[in-house]
C-alpha cells in the first residue's frame, strides 16, 4: 500500500487517508487565453512512465493539499512537499537524481 508523509502535519499517511489530485505544477491559465493554452492546461497531461509530480490531499487528516514526487514504474516515493511552490524543491530533485542519474526537471505546463 502506498504511504506518503503529509508535509503539514507530519503524519505518515496510508493511501486510504488520502485523495489523489492528479498532475502537479500545471499553469492555470485564465480568461483571454487561446485554445491551445486551455487545451494544455485542462486536458493534456505528462502521464510519464517514470517520475511523476502530483497533488494529494490529506482528506482524512488535516485536509490540506500537498505535492509528492513518485515513480509510476516502481511506485517509489522520492518525497513530499508543500503545495505553495510552482516547482519541486532542490532536495526532492536531488532525491530523484540519486536514483535516476541524468534526470532533469522538465517545464511541465509550459506552453511551447
Amino acid at each position: 500500500m502506498l504511504t506518503l508523509q503529509c508535509p503539514y502535519c507530519g503524519v505518515q499517511c496510508d493511501e486510504t487517508e488520502l485523495t489523489a489530485g492528479g498532475e502537479a505544477h500545471l499553469t492555470r491559465h485564465g480568461p483571454g487565453s487561446d485554445a491551445d493554452t486551455f487545451e494544455q492546461y485542462l486536458f493534456l497531461r505528462e502521464n510519464p512512465r517514470g517520475v511523476h509530480f502530483e497533488r494529494w490531499r490529506h482528506s482524512h487528516g488535516c485536509g490540506k493539499w500537498f505535492h509528492a514526487a513518485r515513480s509510476t514504474t516502481t511506485l517509489r516515493v522520492f518525497g513530499t512537499y508543500k503545495a505553495q511552490t510552482t516547482e519541486p524543491p532542490q532536495q526532492i530533485r536531488d532525491a530523484i537524481s540519486a536514483v535516476h542519474p541524468g534526470w532533469s526537471w522538465r517545464n511541465f505546463g509550459e506552453t511551447a
Binding site: 502506498l2 509510476t72 511506485l75
Partner: peptide, 14 residues
C-alpha cells in the same frame, strides 16, 4: 480504478 498514475500492473488492496 485506483486514483493515481501507475504503470506497474498492480493496484491497491483496499
Amino acid at each position: 480504478t485506483d486514483g493515481y498514475n501507475n504503470y506497474t500492473q498492480r493496484g491497491s488492496f483496499h
